[in-house]
């Protein structure tokens, strides 16, 4: 446990400022969306606003679409850029632990940090919009946002995968594949229509979580 605590300490030193920015960004955007909703609700009148939402299916929260991706980039890059600079990852892999444990402690740390940056904000946001919106609207809103959140997690795993890859040309290849994979999560779908996609997106996110194992294995074998 002590060893893991020390490993996490290094990750914390690297990421703490970027994670703070990510947390503020997430909360800031969600508060902005809520304030806009509240203002529209109060100025247009509740019934008119709700009927407009139901009729036109306005995505009043669309500004949030790429925020999880931005948070994943902040956390992922702050965590892995220092490790690939000067091949500093060798220092971590030289620590007296099994390599898989080292890599997965880093990845799980990033995953938890990402969740801490995004999930509490989303829960508060859900609670707040429930004041003005009925469950018939709140639920599809969350269903629409869920792919974006999953996209954030998937992007983080893919950043970890790319960072561990020892060969630059493969990094570019993975970048292209990642772009294609992530575009699945950020498709412009009408509110609530992403529900059928969610199982696939969950599966892709789960699969992406094991991708860093493959590239770290390649790094360890010195694949060129």
């Amino acid at each position: 446990m002590t060893i893991l605590k020390h490993l996490i300490y290094k990750e914390w030193v690297k990421t703490r400022w970027f994670a703070s920015i990510a947390l503020l960004l997430n909360l800031g955007v969600l508060v902005y969306i809520f304030m806009s909703l509240r203002s529209s609700f109060l100025s247009a009148g509740g019934v008119t606003y709700l009927s407009a939402l139901l009729t036109y299916k306005t995505q009043f929260f669309s500004i949030y679409r790429y925020i999880p991706l931005g948070i994943a980039l902040l956390v992922g890059i702050s965590q892995f850029a220092p490790e690939i600079t000067d091949k500093r990852i060798k220092l971590a892999l030289h620590l007296p632990l099994h390599n898989l444990r080292i890599i997965y402690t880093m990845v799980v740390y990033g995953f938890v940090l990402l969740a801490l940056c995004m999930i509490p904000g989303i829960l508060i946001f859900t609670g707040l919009i429930s004041i003005y919106l009925p469950a018939e609207i709140t639920l599809p809103v969350l269903q629409t946002m869920l792919p974006w959140l999953l996209g954030g997690f998937c992007a983080y795993f893919l950043i970890a995968m790319i960072a561990m890859e020892p060969v630059w040309k493969f990094r570019f290849l993975y970048l292209l594949v990642s772009y294609k994979v992530l575009s699945l999560f950020f498709m412009h779908l009408p509110i609530g229509n992403a529900v059928s996609l969610l199982p696939v997106l969950c599966l892709v996110t789960c699969l992406s979580s094991i991708a860093p194992v493959y590239t770290s294995y390649r790094f360890n074998k010195g694949q060129l």
């Binding site: 300490y9 030193v13 091949k87 220092l91 632990l97």
Partner: peptide
């Protein structure tokens, strides 16, 4: 095994106290 990487590469984002605290646990 103590390993010194070419160019004395270390965790440059840490200060001397942080890096000591980090390694001491292992």
């Amino acid at each position: 095994i103590g390993y010194l990487i070419e160019g004395h590469v270390q965790y440059a984002f840490m200060n001397v106290h942080q890096i000591e605290k980090f390694y001491s646990g292992f």
